[in-house]
């Protein structure tokens, strides 16, 4: 019963903060609300007894990626009131892609079956050892593929950032 109350508090917090992310006028506030949202998701992970995933989520998303986002937003000139007129094309594209994503999600929800409720106390899927063993046995190929992807991205960034020598 207690965990249900906590779940509802966390869920409403994440939903409300996610809404604030979208509706905030100031991009800095959006970023701040997104951090609140991530922290509430961190709480959800903890509720599922997935401590490792929770803390990794916190470190990677709230701790690193959002800092970079904040970095970028801070260096923008936010005082500029009048933005140049943009063509409506990106907006249309955004609406179409968002709608498609919604469709896919609805279809998945419709066809798939949600697993029954398992008390998080009984599972230890989120523990470091379990996650590690899973990654290095069942999901070895995807894991290594991801690391190659990251290295490719890093090298790409370095190549782009490096100045050409004259």
């Amino acid at each position: 019963m207690n965990s249900q109350i906590i779940f509802f508090i966390l869920s409403s917090l994440s939903l409300v903060s996610a809404l604030f992310v979208v509706f905030s006028k100031n991009p800095i506030y959006s970023v701040m609300w997104l951090i609140v949202c991530f922290i509430s998701i961190f709480g959800h992970y903890l509720m599922l007894n997935a401590q490792f995933l929770a803390i990794i989520h916190l470190i990677v998303y709230a701790g690193a990626i959002m800092v970079l986002m904040l970095f970028t937003v801070m260096l923008l000139n936010l005082n500029k009131e009048s933005e140049p007129h943009k063509s409506p094309l990106p907006k249309v594209a955004a609406i179409i892609s968002g709608g498609l994503l919604l469709l896919v999600l609805l279809a998945a929800m419709h066809s798939g079956s949600l697993p029954g409720y398992i008390s998080p106390d009984l599972t230890d899927t989120g523990y470091v050892q379990k996650v590690g063993i899973k990654i290095f046995t069942d999901f070895l190929l995807p894991f290594e593929m991801t690391s190659i992807l990251f290295i490719a991205a890093m090298i790409g960034a370095v190549v782009l950032a490096k100045k050409e020598k004259h």
């Binding site: 701790g63 800092v67 801070m74």
Partner: peptide, 25 residues
């Protein structure tokens, strides 16, 4: 006594940046 104690410290320390960034900005 978290079983991820040391990661917890790293996580909280990484959140500490926000105080400085927000204050500075």
């Amino acid at each position: 006594d978290l079983n991820i104690g040391i990661l917890y410290i790293l996580g909280v320390v990484s959140l500490g940046v926000y105080g400085i960034m927000i204050g500075g900005w």
